[in-house]
Structures are given as C-alpha cells and as structure tokens.
C-alpha cells in the first residue's frame, strides 16, 4: 500500500487557495495526495478550473489524488464536468 505523503484539508471558504497550496505540495508527495473535502458543501466554477489544473499536474507527476469526504452534490458536479474519473474517492 502506498504511503500517503501529503494530506490537506480543504476549507470551503478558501477552496481555491487550498488547492493551489496542494498543487505546490505535489512535488514533495510520495505517490499519493489526499485532499479532505469534508467541509466543502458547495464548489464554485473557479475551484473546478483549479481542480482540473491540479489533476493535470498530478497526472504529469504520476501522483494519485484521493478526495475524501466529498458530499454527493459536489460529487455530482465533478461527474457533470467529467472530473470524477480523474480522482479517487474515499468516505
């Protein structure tokens, strides 16, 4: 089992900022990054754009991105914009 090298809690008020920080942390991640979305009730378009960029960077670096605690409304948004397949999800 891969060691989770980076764990980040995503704060709903500062989603974009948190994701940008997560992007910066990818360099030091050892194969996997976990983003905790449990306090994100709703996601905004800008955050989606950043998520897409983040997924692209993670792909390039070969880092697996795991999203934790994503509520079903936000999950549906990920599905609708075809982002869901680019991440793993855990409760």
């Amino acid at each position: 089992m891969a060691m989770i090298a980076v764990w980040l809690k995503i704060d709903e008020e500062r989603v974009v900022h948190a994701l940008q920080e997560a992007g910066a942390a990818l360099d030091s991640a050892d194969g996997e990054v976990l983003l905790d979305f449990s306090s994100v009730r709703r996601i905004v378009p800008r955050a989606l754009r950043v998520m897409e960029e983040f997924a692209g960077i993670a792909d390039n670096k070969g880092v697996k991105v795991v999203l934790r605690g994503v509520n079903v409304d936000v999950y549906r948004v990920f599905k609708l914009v075809k982002l869901a397949s680019r991440f793993s999800f855990v409760s």
């Binding site: 709703r42 996601i43 914009v81």
Partner: peptide, 12 residues
C-alpha cells in the same frame, strides 16, 4: 465548457 461548468455548479 463554460456553460457546462456553470450548469454543473448550478445543480447545488
């Protein structure tokens, strides 16, 4: 793409 993102976000 813009409209699709907006529509997706709107579902919330």
């Amino acid at each position: 793409s813009q409209a699709r993102t907006a529509a997706a976000v709107f579902t919330q």
